[in-house]
Design a protein around this nucleic acid. Structure first.
Lengths: 224, 224
DNA sequence: CTAAAATATGAGTAAGTACTCACTCAACAC
DNA sequence: GTGTTGAGTGAGTACTTACTCATATTTTAG
């Protein structure tokens, strides 16, 4: 527990969060459970293991959480809302405001490199979310409402602003421009996590620049 | 069993395939197993269920396959090699040759709409592959060698050809151009399967066209 | 300090699970 | 007709699982 704990504590203690007033026992259970979920996946994790890791008897777990599934939801859903969702759109807001006057090439480069680190940090969490969303509709719904829809809105607004400023072509639907942008970003991040060993840092940087350039050249040029 | 069986039978009976000389029982077991895997996921499927669905005693399963995991590998890996991999690159080859002289806009539109259908057909299979690749290195390897690397090669060669013909910009690394292209395509397909209900057919068509246009405008314009 | 209430415990339970093995029996050889 | 083979069987095994509950411990109230 270290980087993990930092990440975890930070993103759970939102004020007014329903998880604000957890007892220490409950807290320990959730922390232990999450840690093992990230290591081995949800269904390979046993309640017995969770109990041991939390320093608690197995029965105690079921005093606080009716089922194992409840533990999954109680760990993952708040993280989606406080960590993953804002990780996509929320904290980007700051980056965008800070760098409002830079050319888009540089803005995107900054964002990309920033997001790359972030995604790498939370990769195990993303994997669990991805896998379990297939089997638990509650998770899928939270993924939708906590991550996908907010991000969609965020990117859409960003694109619209830049269109109004004349920095992006106006002969094309904003949603189409946004979709392309997200596609380019997302795929780059996904492929990086599939081939984590590919290439040197310097090489990656050039690749990112190229990808951004292609998108921007396409997203600027107006149909003649 | 219907569309499923068609898909399944077809893509297993390659000549010289190690699965060519399966007995009928073995065949039934694999078919039944795959069907349940696609419905409920691998780990939620019990060997008992498979036996029932295959009309076979549970013991028979283990006469032919040492472990449940062996069944997973025996079902999924050939499908990756014969269905998913070629589905990405192989059958695209034909489309590309047929339409070699059309402008790229139209070629991509044809490809996109063709792939869209294909992905929708095999979506449950893709889900199982995606999920289980996280836990079975053999699957991850087969995914890499059977799908990802061939596709990479394929797209790379395609891009290089078009660069030589002067249809795409030459001031940029082919791999970067290819990566962008695949990103745009892949993300569109992924988002379609996440929001299967979004929009009308006509609307989708316009979106595809837009996305392609953005990519192409970017992938053509040379840096001045 | 005591009674009552809340909380924690971990052995126990019932329901699975993947996998085994002693046995059956149809097909074939001689 | 007898013997041999081996695919097929399904009850059984050894083990694991999420979850329960009578009991023990701690906390709180009067």
């Amino acid at each position: 527990m270290d980087e993990f704990e930092e990440l975890f504590n930070y993103h759970w203690q939102g004020e007014g969060s329903p998880y604000e007033q957890l007892s220490e026992k409950q807290w320990n259970i959730l922390k232990a459970a999450l840690k093992i979920f990230l290591e081995k996946g949800y269904s390979a994790t046993t309640t017995n293991e969770i109990a041991h890791a939390a320093g608690v008897a197995e029965g105690t777990i079921f005093r606080h959480f009716k089922t194992k599934k409840d533990i999954l939801l109680a760990t993952i859903i708040p993280l989606m809302q406080n960590l993953v969702g804002p990780g996509v759109s929320g904290s980007l807001q700051e980056l965008l405001v800070e760098n409002e006057d830079l050319p888009l090439e540089e803005v995107f480069l900054i964002i990309m490199e920033d997001r790359q680190k972030h995604v790498q940090r939370i990769l195990p969490l993303l994997r669990v979310i991805w896998v379990e969303s297939n089997y638990h509709p509650e998770l899928k719904e939270a993924l939708m409402n906590g991550v996908i829809l907010p991000s969609k809105k965020f990117f859409l607004r960003f694109i619209e602003q830049r269109q109004e400023r004349g920095e992006l072509r106006q002969d094309m639907d904003s949603w189409v421009l946004a979709r392309s942008l997200v596609g380019v970003f997302a795929f780059y991040l996904i492929s990086l996590s599939l081939f984590p060993d590919t290439g040197e840092r310097q090489q990656n940087r050039e690749a990112i620049k190229g990808i951004i350039q292609i998108y921007l050249d396409g997203a600027r040029s107006s149909r003649e």
